[in-house]
Design a protein around this nucleic acid. Structure first.
Length: 500
RNA sequence: CGGGGCGUAGCGCAGUCUGGUAGCGCGGUUGCUUUGGGAGCAAUAGGUCGGGGGUUCGAAUCCCUCCGCCCCGACCA
């Protein structure tokens, strides 16, 4: 009857990983490129996923005492100039607004007019404008801490873009906090990176390694950058989120001063931290397979889709009411913090095509309903992550829905976790290191003792395209531990990988 | 910014070398038949061939010019 392909996505992951990724984004209807170079349209299915990420992360941030606010999209150029390292880091990728009006030219086109006295930079991040604001809000130690988050868009004029992973405009949350003491700010930096790790592992089913960035990889202007790194299915690392201890660099630049408990003026200690729509790219590259997206149940826009099979017009009404009955019953059940979300797909298209469209979108469970199911009071259930299909008694399914979804969520994490473990090696000498990263398609994570020389780090990056993703936060080292490259004393076991 | 390529129907492309009046596949619409893993048949709609200028009896095709996009390199969440 129908031609049967082995899988829905072409090419497969092994055939061409980057192209496979693009095809998944497209086939799952998560996003598409737009008329504006480097900017994407996030489609409803992708945006619903982002809304769920927002919802759960936001509530975790609120639970830890943070509140939301909103700061301007535009930043006066002079603000950005105040922190020297920060300027160096972002200047090359800033979009700049220089005019505030358009006038018609003689050919019926429009030309910019009304040049601004001071150009406005479209925020690449908001440390400077938020810092300026905080300086007005803070006078006393009693005004601290300030724990504010904002959900916003930012613009970074990147040279090469990829949907979700690196786009010119992207959505994120950025937290900006100010504290009385260094210790408190450091605590905040650590608290947030752990919160991110928990969120990614618990909700996104993405196993995470936490660590600290080397100086080369640090956020411009930060004293310390903590990060969460995840392993994609091609063995490359994805930086999925960062938390920065900014010391007093930005408070000095923005003049965030307060009178301390001894009555002396002091600069506040600040932090900033964020995760972005890049998380969706990470979710795809962690879980999706050669049939498309696989949504973790906790974040999937819907948990279940019901697909009626109208074989025979005589059954149409019966099938419809059976579908509705199932939907009503399921909607009363919960999974985690959410009610079960059920769709009935009654589009007038071929059922095979309909099924495949949901497989590609990655909905956790599909239920197909025809006369047979009514007769047996059963459901024909397709489970996305295993691609298993089986008939289940209606009541068994409804009563166990939460457990079924929980199992999917856990399986997804376990699978990704095993993959990460399998592709992570302790490497003890330079030969093994070269072999590990020289073999094509044998990417992965390598833990190695390293001396901390940033010239050497740069050379390895230039020669092999392998970077230090992180230094462990609490490493215990003995005098016997030597750098595998230089034989000098080790600063700890650091994580090497190719990265996105 | 360097190096390469592309612009023809909603999408993907052929036609360009060798000028002759617009084509294929998918998709859309309508009808009928189908339907338990990506449907079939038939009919039908849809294009100032990226813009401007030139050569010519005649330009998607040749020449000039402008614009836009994609890929590869130097940056990054």
């Amino acid at each position: 009857m129908t031609k049967k392909k082995n899988n829905a996505i072409s090419p497969t992951r092994t055939e061409n990983y980057p192209e496979w990724y693009q095809q998944v984004v497209k086939s799952a209807e998560l996003a598409e490129t737009s008329a504006v170079r480097g900017c994407m349209v996030i489609k409803p299915w992708g945006y619903a996923l982002w809304e769920n990420i927002q919802k759960f992360l936001d509530s975790k941030l609120k639970e830890t005492g943070h509140v939301n606010a909103y700061f301007p999209l535009f930043i006066p150029k002079s603000y950005l100039e105040k922190e020297a390292e920060h300027v160096d880091g972002f200047a090359k990728e800033c979009a700049v607004v220089t005019h505030h009006r358009l006038e018609e030219d003689s050919k019926g086109g429009l030309i910019p007019a009304g040049e601004l006295e001071e150009p406005l930079v479209v925020r690449p991040t908001s440390e400077t404008i938020i810092g300026e604001t905080y300086s007005k809000w803070v006078q006393s130690y009693r005004d601290l801490p300030i724990l504010i988050n904002q959900w916003a868009n930012v613009v970074r004029w990147e040279m090469r873009t990829r949907l979700f992973l690196r786009t010119t405009e992207f959505l994120w949350q950025e937290g900006h906090t100010a504290h009385e003491t260094q210790e408190e700010a450091l605590d905040e930096t650590h608290k947030i990176i752990r919160l991110y790790k928990n969120f990614l592992e618990e909700y996104m089913a993405i196993p995470i390694i936490i660590g600290e960035k080397t100086e080369n990889e640090r956020f411009p202007g930060a004293m310390k950058t903590l990060c969460i790194e995840a392993m994609m299915q091609d063995g490359k690392a994805l930086q999925a989120g960062t938390s920065h201890f900014l010391g007093q660099n930005f408070s000095k630049a923005s003049n965030i001063k307060f009178q301390n408990r001894e009555g002396k003026n002091e600069f506040a200690w600040t932090t900033s931290w964020g995760v972005s729509t890049r998380l969706i790219g990470g979710l795809i590259m962690t879980h999706a397979d050669d049939d498309g997206m696989i949504m973790p149940p906790k974040l999937s826009p819907n948990h279940v889709v019901i697909i009626p099979h109208f074989r025979d017009e005589l059954y149409r009404d019966k099938i419809n009411s059976y579908c509705n009955e199932i939907r009503m019953a399921l909607s009363k059940e919960s999974f985690g913090d959410r009610k079960i979300s059920v769709l009935i797909d009654s589009r007038d298209i071929n059922v095979g095509e309909k099924s495949w469209s949901w497989i590609k979108k990655g909905i956790p469970l599909r239920i197909e309903i025809g006369p047979k199911e009514i007769e047996n009071q059963s459901l024909f259930v397709g489970i996305r992550d295993t691609m298993q299909k089986k008939s289940i008694l209606k009541n068994d399914f409804i009563n166990n829905i939460s457990k079924i979804l929980e199992d999917i969520q856990n399986r997804m994490f376990e699978k990704a976790n095993n993959f990460q473990k399998l592709n992570t090696k302790d490497i003890k000498n330079i030969n093994d290191f070269n072999n590990f990263f020289n073999e094509k398609n044998s990417n992965g994570f390598a833990w190695c003792h390293f001396c901390g020389d940033s010239q050497l780090e740069k050379k390895i990056s230039d020669d092999m395209g392998v970077t230090i993703r992180l230094l462990p936060i609490n490493s215990s080292i003995s005098d016997n531990d030597k750098c595998i490259f230089t034989g000098k004393k080790s600063i700890g076991r650091v994580l090497f990988a190719r990265s996105y």
